[in-house]
Design a protein around this nucleic acid. Structure first.
Lengths: 346, 346
DNA sequence: TAATAGCACTCTAATATAGAGAGTGCTAAA
DNA sequence: TTTAGCACTCTCTATATTAGAGTGCTATTA
């Protein structure tokens, strides 16, 4: 990702091409750029530079007598070296804060809202992945008998997620015992993640030889068998209609396969999951993406965290020709904000 | 909805037109129909009948020299009087049953699956509305102190829905008292709906003058303030990609506004909500629909019930040119089946 | 030597034209 | 009442033509 060290002028012209193309969606010609520079350079000169840029594979011509269009490689260079990051505007900031003011909202509502806001502000689709259970710290585990051998297991995470499972046990269990288990769990679990809790229980189980052993064993059975362990992490997707309005998707069959890919959420799960390692904003441009339906799209993602722990991902997805600077600023701001909102929930 | 009493022949020809159009998507001409009748009638004769049908506004010509296309009124007559209901096939039945075999699935998973199945079998979009809280009977209410003045309210309905809210109370409350409240509620609520419970508490509150009064009052506060009372009924939507593949939506802007309407779920909430009154399958054709984005679509809905109580709605939505007989059979079968699956969950 | 003006060339997209084909409505005959 | 025949209408497709945008190359200029 080192800077191939273009001359200043080349950079300026390339930036101008990218930005012009992002704005208009039309291949951009030498005249247009010359005009942008107030004719301080002639179209012919621009053309020479363009020929160079084309040799570097930063731009290409859709056909011989058309203007230039940035390639994936070009966009990559642009976002890595040329793009000026911009802060979100005051109005946008206020809008976001107002949207999250509602105190009574639960996690689901908040996440849904976040994805809607991203899509509104970036004019591309917003995508929010719910806090991953395996990264979340535990806050509370409730065990309650709802029928002779049915137990309601309730789990609250630090990010305000409340999950329930009803699990059927083999024998019967009495309420007092259940209370002892849940008291024990709650006294120990503070700040652990689910997998840490599992490890903890396993370890204790090996050390323990007293009557407490049975209790521990039951606790483990309850926690590990609950369906929420096979966490079907949810994804909130909003604003597909923005994408399909873009001219690059006027081709119906392209549109169709994109939609299908989006409906098949698991694709995105993997994709977002991969980004949870690593700091800051991730950008995936066009062909860099793992599956072909979205290889004319770019995805901007950023983790959100509670405390230091990254627990989920928010992002924006649109055509490669999207306003990267805007998307980056929005996604990064929202990820930050969402982390805070969810912490307060916990 | 009375039969305008067409002659037998007219009906047969009209049916043939509708079915042919549904299959091909092309305006159907007199030749095609004559062929379908193995030339027992000449195209010229068919044309005469068609002219009549056009006068009745059952069909129309997109332009002078084109074949005929059914109107909304035509479809309406077709589904009301001509369409032959068909049972779902053995294979489809098996497929559905297999899909719901998983014992550990929670309500959300089941509903999602139902909408996916509808879309798979009907080849149009499937839509499932989660059980309406206000129609569901209560099974269990759990109250649990998670912090000095924070109470986790858990509610389980007869349809297997588990809902949680954390509510903050003004003063403090001790665990023993909380247990008394929840015991009281659970002993009384069996089979009530939420609104019945509310009414019940209000009534008791008026009668009661003992120390129990305070308890009741607290119970009411807890139940009625919980966010789940403002039930944001969820909708599961699957298979939009089927719709956009249809030629009638090859027009991008039409597609766009349809998608937007779908993303704005509240529209559909109202629509489905209205259908919960009344038995059996409801069909809404084209312009009969309340908002313009879906006036080239038809919606087939059917309630699902637990016991006798209708609690939610499933449906299929596709272009007016859809296979009504197939959609009706699938939707009606699934609604039945879903009711049973959810009952077992409760 | 870098920048520019000029010019021939290429390719697309828009427009016009013509013809085929599908389907109709009407009329007259069976 | 049904049908055959026929003129007519309209769309759709293919083809040709043209305008325009943009290029690359070359010779010229500062």
């Amino acid at each position: 990702m080192k800077d191939p060290d273009l001359t200043e002028r080349k950079k300026k012209i390339f930036s101008a091409i990218v930005e012009e193309y992002i704005n208009t969606g039309e291949p951009v010609g030498s005249r247009t750029i010359a005009q942008k520079f107030r004719w301080s350079l002639s179209p012919a000169t621009i053309r020479n530079v363009m020929a160079d840029l084309e040799e570097d594979a930063f731009i290409l011509q859709p056909h011989t007598s058309a203007g230039r269009v940035p390639t994936d490689k070009g966009y990559r260079y642009y976002v890595d070296h040329l793009m000026e990051l911009r802060r979100i505007t005051k109005e946008e900031e206020e809008f976001i804060q107002k949207s999250f003011r509602d105190k009574n909202a639960d996690q689901e509502t908040i996440l849904e809202r976040a994805s809607k806001i991203i899509s509104l502000l970036t004019k591309v689709a917003g995508i929010v992945m719910a806090p991953r259970l395996r990264c979340s710290t535990l806050k509370f585990i409730g065990l309650k008998l709802v029928a002779p051998s049915k137990i309601l297991v309730t789990l609250i995470t630090g990010s305000g997620l409340i999950k329930n499972s009803i699990i059927e046990i083999d024998g019967e269990i009495n309420e007092a015992e259940l209370n002892r288990i849940s008291e024990f769990l709650n006294s120990e679990l503070e700040g652990m993640t689910l997998s840490e809790l599992r490890a903890f229980l396993t370890r204790r189980l090996l050390e323990e030889r007293t009557s407490f052993y049975i209790l521990l064993k039951k606790a483990m059975g309850l926690i590990l068998n609950a369906p929420f362990m096979k966490s079907d992490d949810r994804i909130f997707f909003e604003g597909i209609s923005y994408i399909i309005q873009q001219p690059e998707f006027s081709n119906i069959s392209k549109m169709g396969s994109l939609l299908k890919a989006i409906e098949e959420e698991t694709n995105f799960l993997e994709l977002l999951d991969a980004d949870i390692e690593g700091e800051g904003v991730h950008i995936h441009i066009g062909k860099e993406n793992p599956f072909k339906e979205i290889q004319e799209c770019s995805i901007i993602t950023c983790n959100y965290s509670i405390g230091r722990q990254a627990i989920g991902t928010v992002g924006a997805i649109g055509p490669t020709r999207m306003e990267y600077d805007r998307a980056v600023s929005v996604v990064s701001y929202i990820s930050d904000f969402l982390g805070k909102v969810l912490s307060e929930l916990g």
